[in-house]
């Protein structure tokens, strides 16, 4: 608990932001793999995900060391705690991108089914949510974090549109079911990415304002 903690927290922030930019990049690459029906890009996603996992483990070690050697308190403690939480969400984003890449790999072997525009909108929204949540952390910007929370309903609605559209397509032509189901899975994975973005936004609010707003709607009040 001295000023020597400043470089420690800076290093943790740098590692987390590096993990964040890689998470954005891997998600974009998985979507390109789907769009371009590229097995090569899909394979790259699996490799990129290992790098994200390595960063996650490195952050775990750095956090344990920071807690053991620096015993942070107050805002420092909340940020260390928040960094661990955000890293866990980003690691999951990497896994979800890998899931999308798996769908892309499968679709490359099948007859092409044009992804609906709604899926494109959903992908842009999920990416935007992730990017804004990381911006909110990087800038300590609570307003942006709250904006991410408000944006989650739109993502859910966009996912519903994709699911309804693809189910309609399957009803019309059962032979395209494998490709359509994969597009539904992609939509589900994108919706989960947005959920992780909201988790990150909640962590930003915890770090900055010391307010834990997770599950606030269920609890009926903030805690």
């Amino acid at each position: 608990m001295t000023r020597t903690f400043d470089p420690v927290i800076r290093e943790l922030r740098d590692m987390l932001l590096q993990m964040g930019s890689r998470s954005e990049a891997i998600l974009q690459k998985s979507l390109r793999a789907l769009e371009e029906r590229s097995v090569q890009l899909a394979d790259e996603v699996a490799i990129d995900d290992i790098d994200i996992d390595r960063l996650d483990v490195a952050i775990d070690f750095a956090i344990l060391e920071a807690l053991a050697l620096n015993a942070p308190v107050a805002g420092d403690l909340r940020e260390v705690f928040g960094i661990k939480m955000i890293a866990t969400d980003l690691e999951r984003v990497g896994d979800l991108a890998r899931n999308i890449a798996k769908s892309a790999r499968r679709s490359a072997d099948r007859a092409e089914l044009e992804p609906p525009e709604a899926l494109d909108r959903l992908a842009r929204s999920a990416l935007d949510q992730l990017r804004r949540s990381l911006d909110a952390y990087a800038r300590g910007d609570v307003e942006t974090a709250r904006g991410v929370l408000e944006g989650d309903d739109q993502v859910d609605a966009e996912e519903d549109v994709v699911i309804v559209q693809e189910l309609t397509e399957i009803a019309r032509d059962a032979s395209i079911a494998p490709q359509a189901v994969d597009l539904i899975l992609v939509a589900k994975n994108l919706e989960r990415v947005a959920d992780h973005a909201t988790n990150i936004a909640e962590d930003v609010i915890l770090i900055i304002e010391a307010q834990n707003i997770k599950h606030a709607a269920k609890f009926g009040a903030t805690s």
Partner: peptide, 17 residues
């Protein structure tokens, strides 16, 4: 006090700043 001090001076002191 040790998780969410209300006064900046307290925060600065307990975090070593």
């Amino acid at each position: 006090i040790f998780t969410n001090p209300k006064v900046q001076k307290t925060n600065d002191y307990i975090t070593g700043r």
